[in-house]
Structures are given as C-alpha cells and as structure tokens.
Design a protein around this nucleic acid. Structure first.
Lengths: 185, 185
DNA sequence: CCGTATTAGCGAAGTAAGTTAGACATTATC
DNA sequence: GATAATGTCTAACTTACTTCGCTAATACGG
C-alpha cells in the first residue's frame, strides 16, 4: 500500500433503499439498471428487425402492435397510445395516418366525444402481424429461453408494479424540475 | 350466442415455450413483452431528465455513465461502448468528442493497438455525476420502490442471463434476414 | 344558456438522434 | 511486403421525433 495503482474514484450511491443495497453498496443495483438498459436496447433492435420483415420501421411496428394489444382491452385513442409509449400525440397522429393510408389501421370518431379518435387494427393489419408470428416465435424462444416459469411469473408481477412506480417517479421528476425553475426565477 | 358482439380476432402465438404459456396462451407473455417496453420508455424518459439536470441530452448522459461504469471493470473503447449500447461507432465517436470538448471524458490511444481509443471519465465528469446522485437517489427510490430484496436479486440474475440470450436472438435474426435476401436473389 | 378555458387531434416546420459511406491509419495474415 | 481486416473519424444524409399554432369539440362558471 501507499502506492496508488488506479485510484478507482468513489462512485456515489444512487439509491438509499436497504432492499437494493448489498453490504451498503449500490453496485449491484447499478448493475440492474445497466442491465435493464442493455436489455431494452437489444429488444428494440429486435423490434426493428420484426418491423423490417413486414415492411415497417421500428416505431411504426411498435405503434401497430400497441394499438392491437391495447384495443383488445378497451377503446384506445391517439392520445392513449401516445401516453403509453411516452411520445407526443402529434407523432402518433402522423404515424397512424401513414398506417391508415397503408390500410393497416382505421381511425373512427369516438361516439360520445367528438374530439377523440378511436384506433383499431384492420384485418390486413392483423394478417400482416400474423405473417410475422412464426418468426417472432423462433426469436422469442431464443431471447426468453433462459426464463423459467417461476422467473417468468415473478418478472411479470414485478414489471406490472414497476410501471406505475416509474410513472410516479416521472411526475416527481417533473415537479422537481419545475420547482427548480421557479426557485431560479 | 349466435350474436357477434366483438369478434376479438385471434392473435397468433409468439412463443412456443411451455414455461411462457399459461393454459396454452401467450397472453401473459405478451403482457411481459409489452410491460418491458413500457418500462423501458419510462426509464428512458427519466434518463432524459437526469441528463437535462446536468446539461446533457439523454444519449450523452447515457454514454457518459456507460463509460464510467464500463471503465470501472476494464479498459473501454469507442467500439466497446457502441456495441454495449447497440448503436454505431460513428455515433459514439461524435458524442464522445463533444463530451471531450466539454472536459467530461478523455480519449487516449490504446498503448498496444494504435487504432483503438480508450475512454475515461474526467474528474469534472465524475463531479458532474456526483452532483446528480442525490436527486437520482430520490427518484430511484420511487421508481424501484415496489421491489423487494428477493425480487431484486431475481431480476438481476434473470436480466444477466437475458442479455446474452437477446444477443443470440439478434444474431439469429440477422442470419435469417440474410438468408431471405439470398433466397430472393 | 354563453363566453371561457380545456382537451383531442392535426399539419407544418424544425431539431436531435441516429445511420451509411468513405477516408485513413494501424494491425493481422499469408 | 502486399492484402485484407479492424478501429476511428468526418461528412452527408435519413428518420424519429418535438414544438407550435390551428381547428373542433367538450366542460365549466357565471
């Protein structure tokens, strides 16, 4: 000792929850955050490939499948998709218009609220997605191959609780940013 | 019966693994995939906010923190970061040049391979990230608040296995796309 | 009711986040 | 020692978005 090899400067903690600290360190937690990022970038790359196979860009594919799956559990509007994907409504408008032109989705007025526009996937859209399904199955089996049934259940349960928590964090972040802006002004 | 209410057209399966099917349906599995997407979009939005707080765009922030954390476990190069984040090397070059101009990272020649460029985060860069840490802690505690210690461990273990699996899926996807291209030609 | 404020969607225009292509220097291969 | 391959960089381009301003429809306070 006495000789500095590589100082490895201290990295400050980014969580204070006991459940997420191991021996008082958040190293494992940061690994989780990092892993989550790595996984989502890879998943997005796969998504781009899925889209490409049916002639859609990644975002268009994501929107199409989101409309299909969200519509399955209740009426879904332009702004509903926007909020779900955390993008601007204008973007969903533009993309769904293109998808409508291609005959993959339909846009209809909401019967009770004329401002809103209901989205749904056409038969052609469903057929397109159905074409993709066999390939998707092969790739999903590889991508999620290491997942046991128990882990699958845990992941599902966890993620469903994590989404609203992330939304709360987003609200808090917005509130803090707004507070800072006021404080500076 | 006999009266069609809403036909609810069949959605084809996208996995064939028993562990991921519940009563023969992949509905829960698709929920997982969807949830993963929803979570990652929210996480990315939070990341943008973190970046904004220290004057960086989301991607620049992500690259900075990736360099710091990857460098902690061994030498890291431009292409190393590119592969980790699944973006082009050229993009990492451009962004790290900006970060270098701002004095947040340094780029040095690899001593044994003159083509490669080693990246590291400067003291100023570390200080900037350290400034952010307290706010990050607050938000992470909210975002990951619902996570128990057991779930945390499971998630970590699962994600670390899922990343290489996703990489294998990507390779397979690329191979299939290439095969199709040849087949068509 | 009636004005006013909100909310939903749209289109145009701009910005940022990437990509591809090509040049160049360095290293590996034969 | 030539040829190929790898790693980085720059420039030019594309795509994935956002913001802004508009119109139409609903909601709300007097």
């Amino acid at each position: 000792m006495g000789l500095k090899t590589t100082p490895t400067p201290a990295i400050p903690r980014t969580t204070s929850r006991d459940a997420l600290l191991i021996d008082g360190s958040d190293a494992e937690f940061r690994k989780l955050v990092h892993g989550l990022l790595a996984l989502s970038t890879r998943h997005e790359a796969l998504r781009d490939g899925h889209g490409a196979r049916i002639g859609l860009a990644g975002p268009a594919y994501t929107i199409l499948i989101s409309v299909r799956d969200l519509a399955a559990q209740g009426p879904i509007t332009v702004s509903g998709v926007a909020e779900h994907l955390k993008v601007s409504g204008a973007f969903i408008t533009a993309e769904t218009n293109k998808l409508e032109t291609r005959g993959l989705v339909t846009k209809t007025r909401h019967p009770e609220d004329g401002r809103r526009v209901l989205l749904s996937v056409t038969e052609a859209g469903r057929a397109l997605l159905a074409d993709l399904a066999p390939v998707q199955t092969i790739l999903n089996d590889v991508e999620f191959g290491p997942l046991t049934r128990a882990e699958f259940r845990t992941m599902l349960r966890v993620i469903e609780r994590l989404i609203p928590a992330a939304d709360r964090a987003l609200e808090l972040q917005a509130a803090m940013a707004a507070g800072d802006a006021r404080g500076v002004a």
